[in-house]
């Protein structure tokens, strides 16, 4: 049985306000687990906000219900994990491979940044929900 030392969950409309709420959740989470090193906090926070922002900016509703964002974060002794979900959303459109934009491009760096920040990124689609699972092995 895996020991969960701290956790936070958010669910709400996939709108700009949600990003600030998720960020505030992360800030308060780190206060509960001060042994998680600054570098791990910084990288993981950035990856979670990138993923949540991606959903707010790009997820399209599959039907009449608006897209909702869900972010479930758990801290285990040497593992930080976030399940970042888009509920009531269409499957992601287009390639999910990170782009390599030119140096004057103003967008397109998010996926590559997420991959650089965490140990693994996996994608699941089930019952109309897209979920990105971000895991970062943290320093003990």
């Amino acid at each position: 049985m895996t020991e969960v030392l701290a956790s936070r969950s958010f669910r709400g409309p996939a709108a700009e306000d949600a990003i600030e709420s998720v960020h505030n959740n992360l800030d308060s989470l780190w206060l509960d687990v001060p042994f998680v090193q600054d570098m791990d906090q910084m990288t993981f926070t950035t990856a979670v906000i990138e993923s949540a922002s991606n959903i707010v900016q790009h997820a399209e509703p599959a039907g009449p219900d608006q897209v909702e964002l869900g972010v479930d974060i758990t801290v285990q002794p040497t593992l930080l994990q976030a399940r970042v979900s888009a509920y009531h959303a269409k499957p992601p459109f287009g390639p999910m491979e990170p782009a390599t934009p030119g140096e004057d491009a103003e967008s397109g760096r998010g996926l590559a940044l997420i991959q650089a920040l965490v140990t693994t990124v996996t994608f699941e689609r089930q019952d109309g929900t897209n979920t990105w699972v971000l895991s970062r092995t943290s320093q003990a």
């Binding site: 922002s53 103003e106 967008s107």
Partner: peptide
């Protein structure tokens, strides 16, 4: 205290 890829994109837009 924090910048994501959207913020970076804005800085690049401002640079241009």
């Amino acid at each position: 205290a924090f910048m994501d890829s959207s913020g970076l994109g804005a800085l690049i837009g401002c640079l241009k």
